[in-house]
């Protein structure tokens, strides 16, 4: 199983990675991308099982990335958790309409984030863990 962390902030990628590591998710199961364009390229070359995606990023933002991903047959049902500072109701509606599975507003503590992530990992039955 592969989890991709898509965030232009190096610090946020590290924080999310640490949250996953604390739950014994192995390093080799995590991929990182600094923007939607990079993430899209990576997702084409390797099938990803869960995405953690920021909204505001250069090149291709999180919303546009989600729309492109959903348009690809292989990612029509893959869980996508948007983790963003964007807290306005209209942002949440826009993201859900675009195909986001779950919407999480930053800042979020690691244990709370894990509560949001773990159901999707459970569904896939992460046998390796």
């Amino acid at each position: 199983m592969k989890i991709m962390i898509v965030d232009d902030s190096e610090v946020m990628r590290r924080i999310h990675r640490n949250t996953l590591k604390e739950q014994n998710i192995p390093d080799e199961s995590m991929l990182e991308a600094a923007d939607g364009a990079e993430a899209l390229k990576m997702a084409i070359s390797e099938q990803i099982d869960l995405f953690l995606v920021d909204w505001n990023m250069p090149k291709l933002d999180g919303l546009a990335f989600v729309k492109k991903l959903r348009a690809m047959g292989s990612y029509s049902e893959t869980p996508i958790i948007m983790i963003t500072s964007e807290a306005a109701k209209y942002n949440v509606i826009e993201a859900i309409t675009a195909g986001v599975t779950n919407y999480v507003v930053k800042p979020i503590r690691g244990n709370v984030l894990w509560e949001k992530i773990s159901p999707y990992i459970g569904k896939k039955g992460w046998a390796a863990l």
Binding site: S9, E10, V11, M12, N56, T84, S85, E86, A87, A88, K89, N91, V105, K106, P107
Partner: peptide, 16 residues
């Protein structure tokens, strides 16, 4: 990067 992320959170959260 971290300081930038903090202002991003403040602005994004304030929009609510």
């Amino acid at each position: 990067d971290g300081v930038g992320e903090l202002v991003n959170i403040i602005a994004g959260n304030a929009k609510k």
